[in-house]
Design a protein around this nucleic acid. Sequence first.
RNA 1: GUCCCCAUCGUCUAGAGGCCUAGGACACCUCCCUUUCACGGAGGCGACCCGGGUUCGAAUCCCGGUGGGGACGCCA
Length: 469
Amino acid sequence: MLYMTVRTRFAPSPTGFLHIGGARTALFSWAFAKKHGGDFILRIEDTDVARSTPEAVQAILDGMHWLGLDYDEGPFYQMQRMDRYKQVLKTMMDAGSAYYCYSSREELDALREQQMANKEKPRYNGKWRPEVGKTLPEIPTDVKPVIRFKNPQTGVVAWDDLVKGRIEIANNELDDLIIARDDGTPTYNFCVVVDDSDMGITQVIRGDDHVNNTPRQINMLLALAEIDANIKLPKYAHLSMILGSDGQKLSKRHGAVSVMQYDDDGYLPEAVINYLARLGWSHGDDEVFSKQQFAEWFDLDHITPSAAQFNTEKLNWLNNHYIKAADLDVLATDITKRLARMNITVTAQPSIKDAIALYRDRANTLNELAQSIAYFYSQPQIDEAAKEKHITPDILPVMNALTAQLANTNWTTEALHAAIEHAVTSNGLKFPKVAMPLRVMLTGGAQSPSIDAVMCILGKEETLKRLAF
RNA sequence: GUCCCCAUCGUCUAGAGGCCUAGGACACCUCCCUUUCACGGAGGCGACCCGGGUUCGAAUCCCGGUGGGGACGCCA
């Protein structure tokens, strides 16, 4: 066989937003396809009609878009492929690899409960499984049947997982899973098999929680391959999970947030991508790299098989790096929006680009950046403790004299620095003694970049207005 | 309970039997820079889960234990 075009897919179910774990799975699938010049496909697994919502579909699409994970095909929707599933279902029924099961839900529940009580692995008892020489029970009239896959009962299913290595499972551990509900709609494991096969998926890259589904899917694929010799098995790569910063599993109730939340919180998509790429994958000692670089470097051989804990500090560090590297105009647009959300209107003066340039080094998030330059456009809340500490009675004459002098000072950083320096030296003081009171009155607090630079951006009029000692 | 998976600094990780006195990054600590706080620079603290093998030699291979996780749906 010659080289087959690589085709990967991301197949979320639209029952919620795109969270960080799903995002990483999508990123890795995307990167694998890019690396090999293949196609990345988006498929929405919406066969659970009761729980799927259009809002969730949109949330997933938004998340993918924000992260810049473009797909070559799709989005495909499983609900639109019903005819195809029914067709395959019929083929399997005809071939005898699937059968009707008339056990009621109640019956099944009771069976499961009993097995749990006996400390057995809960599984279907094969009541309606046809066998040569076996007489099936009389078909009840009040039960609509489900369709079950006739799983092999002996031997083992095995595959060489691209991240975990060889995994073998005995067929007698598997039971006959339901592949179509009593209303005729197909279920997850069946749809996945049909879709991955139809869509020519070559590498299934998905979460660790699917390891247990893989043997069932392989068995179905094998059964299908007996009917259609063209059907090939994909390779499988199972990614371990991402745990919360406390080491606990991420869930809706516990720490799993939408990737869009990171946007709201002031993280750049570049930072999130870079961070996610390093969570469970490595390229030597490289830490900071672009999405494009990642796509060139990515491979399945350097994926860690163990679970990774999410660490906000490192994300912050990366985010700060990307904030420092970002285009000023882009930042200005973004920060203006964030300030607007705080009911602060950005005006032409002071220059927001100058303000951002002065503060970007110290911001871990865009929200912090917006917060830190807010005082240029609104009156700062004076930190009373800082005021008390730095604006002491003895310094007031110096400050008043300086303020008066400032009124006649050329408004450049250099001239402002000289003016402050003059107040410092002519009074035999240390620089901070004069700089700190200015800082408190001008910015509201005791921390800021060089105060002369701050004054220069703030402007003469506003500076003098705030310097009412 | 049964089956499956996993195990290197606090965290993310490098590591393919000798390059390991176990490397890098985040965080933390110290110092330098300095106009406060950051940024930046230089140092520092800090790990191979335990026990058996295999081997001249094991973080690396094998077995067992322990610990953690996942799955066991007419969810995906």
